[in-house]
């Protein structure tokens, strides 16, 4: 649908990250998506992010599609072995999902079922290889498929690394591109000073980077991220702006809009907007996107 077509046509794409419900009531998720239907090209549906049990990405992606919006499904190595992963991918393709992301998944100890056993039957590289094979008509055991899936494939990327860690991430990035990944979604970015080497690598290898823009909700959140989230580079100026603002929510929304603008100016392939449950704020945050549609 929309995201893949626009991405492959080289147009600036707008993704929105939306969490599936913890339960069967999909109304909040669907309402949130409907609020920006036509503005967002697709919704990235995380697969039980932070190892918190929720509706599966496949199920929620199908719900979104049934409501007329495009979804980018995630598959995670943490919870499924090669049989389940492939089965889900076939189901996704049959349900019309044409873009997906592979993720390793956080360890269950981080989540709300911390005594659960993780699977990790395959790693990302093997999974991507398996998907390529499926796309050529054979499953991971080499058995012929009747009908092959075809996905635009993405992965996550951490650009907030220095020194040897950065080299490792750049290598990982190259391996992923070799294995068929076309787009990388970053961690939340508030400025772009550290993205250059990744931008260059993506360019050299024919993949694209889509930064995540996170809507901050409060001064506490900005401070917490600055102090405790080591994969996010939170500039002091941002914390200061929230601190100084009399209407903090409005200021945070304004900053998110400005960051989206900056993402576009920097020449990225698109943006991934995350509101962490504040989907009602999406129309306001994405207002800036109106002018981007041609």
């Amino acid at each position: 649908m929309q995201f893949r077509r626009r991405f492959e046509a080289g147009e600036f794409t707008c993704l929105v990250q939306i969490d599936p419900p913890k339960g069967t009531d999909v109304s909040t998720m669907v309402d949130g998506a409907m609020g920006v239907k036509g503005i967002a090209d697709a919704f990235i549906v995380p697969e039980m992010a932070n190892a918190v049990m929720r509706m599966s990405s496949l199920g929620a992606s199908v719900v979104l599609r049934n409501n007329g919006v495009d979804a980018v499904m995630q598959v995670s190595c943490r919870d499924r072995n090669r049989l389940a992963l492939q089965g889900d991918l076939l189901a996704a393709a049959a349900c019309g999902i044409n873009a997906m992301m592979v993720v390793t998944g956080e360890d269950p100890s981080f989540g709300d079922h911390h005594t659960a056993k993780a699977v990790y039957d395959v790693d990302l590289g093997t999974l991507l290889k398996g998907i390529s094979s499926m796309e050529k008509g054979r499953d991971m055991a080499g058995v012929e498929l009747s009908g092959a899936p075809d996905f635009l494939k993405g992965a996550t990327l951490n650009t907030c690394l220095r020194g040897a860690d950065r080299e490792v991430e750049l290598d990982r990035m190259k391996e992923m591109v070799d294995a068929g990944v076309k787009f990388f979604i970053t961690q939340p970015l508030f400025e772009f000073s550290m993205t250059q080497p990744f931008f260059k690598t993506a360019d050299n290898y024919g993949a694209k980077i889509i930064p995540t823009v996170l809507l901050l909700k409060s001064l506490g959140m900005a401070r917490y991220m600055a102090r405790n989230v080591n994969y996010v580079n939170m500039p002091d100026a941002i914390v200061h702006r929230v601190l100084k603002a009399s209407d903090k929510v409005r200021e945070c929304t304004r900053m998110a809009r400005e960051t989206i603008e900056a993402v576009k100016k920097e020449g990225f392939a698109g943006v991934n907007v995350s509101t962490l449950g504040w989907e009602h704020k999406l129309p306001e945050v994405l207002g800036v996107m109106d002018g981007l549609k041609g």
């Binding site: 269950p108 005594t115 056993k117 993780a118």
Partner: peptide, 12 residues
């Protein structure tokens, strides 16, 4: 009851 796998390999 449901097995606590955190003492096995679940926590690394």
């Amino acid at each position: 009851p449901i097995k606590d796998w955190s003492t096995e390999r679940a926590g690394g």
